[in-house]
Amino acid sequence: MTAPAAAYGKALDLITRVRGVRGAMLVSAEDGIVVAEQLMEGIKGPALSALAASLATRLRRAMEAAGVGASVFWHLQAEQGALLVVPTPGGTLVVAVAEPDVNVGLVRLELLRAAEVVG
């Protein structure tokens, strides 16, 4: 991780400004610990970060085994919302929780921008 702590908040701001985003967080991909978060009330950050990191690890291994390389962006779709994730080269996951009608392309863009800030 290369950015100072103050930059994390700005990185998360980029994401939560998008309409339909219920929260965003930075998660250590290795151990599933929350690095920074801006979540709406009711979202359990620590549990979510652990599950997101675990899912990211399985997915990364499967994708590498399949020969499609490391994941750049992934999007878990559900009936009433979505979880969108961008892994950074430095081992952080930039995570967004969103409403079902969110503009996925826009969130993806902001997640990628935030990932550049976080490093």
């Binding site: 009711g42 979510l48 559900a78």
Partner: peptide, 17 residues
Amino acid sequence: LLGLGKWTGLAAEGKLG
């Protein structure tokens, strides 16, 4: 955990596929 109902899919973009 997020109260989003059932999961319906997971789309992932890789560097090569």
